[in-house]
Amino acid sequence: MTDDVFDEGARDWLEAELADTLDEDFEIELEDAILSQEIRKIYDRAHPNQIDRKVYFQSLLRLQSELIKLQDWVQHSGEKVVVLFEGRDSAGKGGVIKRITQRLNPRVVRVVALPAPSDREKSQWYFQRYVPHLPAGGEIVLFDRSWYNRAGVERVMGFANDDQVEDFFNDVPEFERMLVRSGIRLVKYWFSITDEEQQMRFLMRVHDPMKQWKLSPMDLQSRVRWEEYTKAKEEMLERTNIPEAPWYIVPGNDKKRARLNCIDHLLSQFPYGPIPHDDISLPDRVFKPDYERAVLPRDLYVPAKY
C-alpha cells in the first residue's frame, strides 16, 4: 500500500470518526424531537432569542476541551472536587451534567444521584449516606441533588419535621467547612427557572413518551407547592451561603445558555493548566505465523438487523 493510499484512507477514517462525534452531539440535542407540534410552537414563541445552533456547538466543544484539561489537572495534582447541582424539577441540572461528563473519563468524573433513603438510612446521621460518595484524590464527583434534599423536597413534602430541618441548617455549614478543610473543593449551583418555564417543560414531558419517566408524583406536587418551594429555597440560600462554600445561581430559562454559562463558570473556579503528556505512538502489531484464529459459532453473534 502506498503512502498516498494510506493517507487517503486515514483521512476517510478521521472524517468518519468526526461525523460519529457530531452524530452523538445531535443525538443528545434531539431529546426534544418527539413533541406535539403545538407544544413546540408555544415553546419557540416563549424563547424567541435562542442561541444560534452553530455558535452553541462551537462554544460547547471549546468548553468541553477545557473540561478535559481540568480533568487532567485534577488527576495529575490529586485534587478532590465536589460539585452540587440543585434546583427545581426540570430546571436543567441533568442537561448540564450530561454535557460536562460527555467527553470525560468516568473513572475520574462520576455522577451521584441517590434514590430516596432506605429505612436503615433514615436512622443514620443525615449526612452519612453521602459521605461514601465523596471523592478520593484525583476525582471529581457531581451530585445530581445532594444533602440539600432536606432543605427542599423533604421539608416541603413533610418527610422531615421542623426540628430535623433546623438541625440540618445548623449542621450543614460546619459539615461543608469540614469538607473544605479536608482538601475538597466544593462548588454549589442552584438552577433557577420561572413558574411559567417549569410549567412548559412539564407539558413537554407529558407529551413526549421518551421523557414521561421524568415525571414522578413528587414532580407533579412541586407544581402545586410552587410557593412553598420558593420559600424553602430562599431560606436555604440565606442560611447555607457561607464564604467557604458559596452558592452560585444559574438562570436556567434558556437551557443552552445555562449550560454554557455554568460550564464556563465551573472552569473559572480552578487554577488548572496544561499537564505534560508523553507522546503516544501506536506499537506494531505482533504476528505469529503459527497462530490460527478460531471460527466461532454463528449463534454467538448479535443478529445483524440493521
Rank of each mutant, 00 (worst) to 15 (best):
Q199Y: 10
Y229C: 00
L134N: 02
I242R: 11
E174D: 14
S182K: 02
W247P: 03
W190A: 08
I184T: 04
F168A: 05
L220H: 00
R150C: 08
K214P: 05
E166Q: 15
A113S: 14
A232F: 08
D208E: 01
T240G: 05
F159E: 09
S216H: 11
H207G: 03
E166G: 08
P115N: 09
H133G: 10
Y148W: 06
D171Q: 15
Q212N: 06
V112A: 10
I242P: 01
Y189N: 01
I242A: 02
D195A: 07
W125I: 04
P115D: 13
N241D: 06
D171G: 14
L134F: 13
N161E: 11
S146C: 03
R225Y: 11
F202E: 11
Q128S: 14
E176H: 00
W213T: 00
A151Q: 15
S192W: 12
A245I: 05
P115Y: 08
L114F: 09
P135H: 00
E197W: 06
E121M: 13
L142C: 09
D162H: 15
P217E: 13
K188A: 04
R145D: 02
F168S: 05
D195H: 11
R201L: 13
T194E: 09
P173K: 04
K188G: 01
M178C: 02
G183S: 06
W125P: 07
E238Q: 15
S182R: 00
A232Y: 04
F168W: 15
R225C: 08
Q198N: 07
P132V: 01
F202K: 05
Q212G: 04
A136W: 15
E139C: 02
R110K: 15
F168N: 06
Y248P: 01
F168V: 05
G183H: 12
P209D: 00
Q124H: 02
W226H: 08
E238F: 04
R129Y: 00
F168D: 12
V187D: 07
G158P: 11
K214S: 07
G137H: 11
Q212L: 09
Y229V: 03
G158L: 10
K231T: 08
Q124M: 03
I184L: 03
E166I: 12
N170D: 15
R155Q: 13
A232H: 08
D208V: 01
Y126W: 01
V156L: 14
W147A: 13
R239H: 06
S182Q: 01
A160M: 12
D167K: 13
I193P: 08
K214E: 05
F191G: 01
D144W: 03
V172N: 11
A160V: 12
R205M: 02
D195C: 04
Q199S: 04
K122Q: 10
A113P: 13
S118D: 14
N161D: 15
K231A: 09
L215A: 09
